[in-house]
Design a protein around this nucleic acid. Structure first.
Lengths: 159, 159
DNA sequence: TTCCAACTTCAAGGTAGCTTGAAGTCAAGC
DNA sequence: GCTTGACTTCAAGCTACCTTGAAGTTGGAA
């Protein structure tokens, strides 16, 4: 399994821009894998560079390591992922990214018109809606967070 | 300063969808303010609802409470912010949101073409570039993170 | 006036995502 | 063969952002 092109953790850190401590952490979390030299040092396959890039890109978009790990788990276990494998993975992520972009654009476009206009605490605002009538229908709360409706009460703490 | 329309922390929590514990935390962090009843209970002005909405919206976009606090600090101290005040604040945030959106769109559009095509660890990729030649020029690392260039080495840990 | 849910403070706990430090081992150049 | 920097593990620490629990107080309705 060892090749001349395997990377030490330091090389992987340099080339990915990710600290060695973070790489060990990713490995502990099963996001990346390594094999060991006879002297117990980690060696990473070149393909790991791509995995790390994916991890950082995904983190940038606000995904947790758990979610990223789940995505990466869809890649083949035994062999180096092919272009097709990565292509498949990125296709599955497209809707997620679309949603994120939409949410952000909505915020950007509404921030001025909505917070700016002062309707934020009033009726029928696409950005935020704590209106009492609507609340009676169970739709109070922040509309920017997807799926918030059923969480609003659960998020309360004091008795 | 007390009006009939002041909110208890529970009401603010219900109407904002934010836990009371979080609201107390925000107050401790000076993101929101309250006055007290004779019995030492918090009462919030209606306008606080708008502040909380702003805080959550901003968090959604990935901003820290420190950054949000700094933004909110630009609002007037003594009086209830006017539409104009909010308008001003949201205008200042526009570039930040634009940048976020752009970053996200870039990731979305490049993910397929770039990670998918396998160029991720090769030359001249807009998404990621650990190419050795470019690294020699000091441009290795993840290109998605703004201003990463000077951080790449600092992020390394092991000696 | 009594009751109890909603409040109060304070300290500790929790999760995510790492970083830091100690103490020791490996490997590659002189 | 020696030196030294890059590696190893493990435990503890750190920042952000809260949550939980204990122990006590308030306030509004019956």
């Amino acid at each position: 399994m060892e090749t001349a092109h395997d990377l030490t953790i330091g090389q992987l850190a340099d080339r990915s821009g990710v600290a060695t401590s973070a790489l060990r952490y990713y490995e502990e979390r099963k996001l990346i894998r390594s094999h060991r030299t006879t002297g117990n040092q980690r060696r990473y396959a070149q393909a790991t560079l791509r995995r790390v890039a994916f991890i950082r890109a995904a983190q940038n978009v606000g995904l947790s390591l758990d979610e990223i790990g789940a995505a990466l788990a869809s890649l083949p276990e035994g062999r180096t992922p092919t272009k097709r494998d990565w292509h498949q993975l990125s296709r599955e992520w497209r809707p997620r990214l679309d949603e994120q972009v939409e949410r952000l654009v909505r915020l950007r476009d509404k921030l001025d018109g909505c917070i700016g206009c002062g309707c934020l605490s009033l009726k029928a605002c696409a950005l935020y809606n704590p209106d009492d009538e609507l609340r009676a229908e169970g739709t109070g709360g922040v509309l920017l967070e997807p799926g918030h409706d059923r969480d609003v009460r659960a998020r309360r703490t004091g008795r």
